[in-house]
Design a binder for these strands. Structure first.
Lengths: 212, 212
DNA sequence: GTGCGATGTATCGGTCCGATACATCGCGGT
DNA sequence: ACCGCGATGTATCGGACCGATACATCGCAC
């Protein structure tokens, strides 16, 4: 998952670790707290070893100002390679069942702007099915096994069931939107009608590996 | 987290691994998919090494039927020890900040019936604060950084924000209920008024380490 | 009689987290 | 003038947990 997210983010701009973490946190804030350096740096190492990103020490200010004095440990800037872009495309194309769990789905969704419509649809439907299964499981427990469980556990299940139902509805909306061929413009909330064309017509895909 | 959940469950009855997993899945179904044997068995080993549970091969049917023939690898039944119960109580009492993340909170909540009211309140309020912080973070992103992000990422944030607001409301309700001193009886859903006193007056705590 | 899904125990490699360490920079306070 | 302190920045280590896999038994349907 981290690998996927990093490759996705680095396609927007080269970054160093700290920045990467901040962007990741902003982009994925809805689904996970904040990724740890204990995962980030080893993963960067791994990606570099695989040739999907390159690592370059930041230029020390035109090599003139601030000489070797104190030997400033410069920031390390990571850049995605052509192979990295291919890898990212491949990860999207695979998009198997592991993509449908909470984190996996969230991360993939966050990069839907770089995903072709067919795959978007496939992922949304896979996720929906998974949530529907979870929902049925919760209904079973609340129905059949209710008297075996204490009031708090039951309340937890109810809350979970609620969340499932809500997410299914959300996914239905997104799927319908996707089928109608347009971006997830949400009519409920503000900016009704205004401001130019639209924000980010989400790059309707099939683009693999464009020029550097 | 697993350690906590296992100690909690084994206080209801001794169990073998497979059963433990099933019960765990039923009890925690709302918050996590299904715990893996790759975590379960090593954890059981660890708990046994610490002396918090004991491991006993199931009696092979009064030692008479089914002799050593085929050397049936019997099920291994785990039983919690007095030290294990103490450990569980201690884990509840600690209930630090790590208790407020998604999984940690969920697992603790599932065992609220074995938690004293003061700690319940503390956990609920800690969780609320944490969710409020996440909510503020999402609002910030949706407000200030909106134009930097694509439509899909924004939609994800909106959905996350929605979930945060909903959970805060849920927690408020639970906290109010808790302050008023009663179980999380939910008036919205079925069984309004009926059926004896109430289900499971949730063991109002301060009980540490009762007799074996 | 045989295959197949549920029950049941167990390991291995790999991902990710939390704690920790350490260094630099710019800012406000005293 | 100095100091601390929070933000920036890179990095490691032990441990928790997962997913895949392996293997064995049981009962039942075909």
């Amino acid at each position: 998952m981290l690998e996927f997210a990093i490759l996705g983010l680095l396609q927007e701009a080269p970054m160093h670790g700290y920045e990467l973490r901040k962007e990741l946190t902003a982009k994925l804030g809805a689904i996970r707290a904040a990724i740890s350096y204990g995962s980030l740096y080893p993963t960067l190492r791994r990606l570099q070893a695989a040739g999907w990103i390159t690592e370059a020490a930041e230029a020390p200010a035109t090599a003139e100002e601030v000489p070797a004095l104190t030997s400033r440990r410069g920031r390390v800037v990571y850049t995605i390679t052509a192979e990295g872009k291919e890898r990212f495309a491949q990860l999207i194309a695979q998009a198997g069942p592991e993509t449908y769990d909470d984190t996996g789905f969230g991360v993939h969704f966050a990069f839907f702007a770089r995903t072709d419509q067919a795959t978007r649809l496939r992922i949304l439907e896979g996720r929906r099915r998974k949530i529907e299964e979870r929902r049925e499981g919760l209904r079973d427990v609340l129905g059949r096994a209710a008297e075996r469980l204490d009031a708090y556990t039951l309340e937890l299940q109810r809350h979970g069931l609620d969340a499932c139902e809500r997410e299914v509805r959300w996914l239905e909306e997104l799927i319908a939107n996707e089928r109608s061929g347009r971006a997830p413009a949400d009519p409920r909330r503000g900016t009704a009608g205004g401001r130019g064309d639209n924000d980010s017509p989400p790059t309707p895909g099939t683009s693999r590996t464009e020029r550097p």
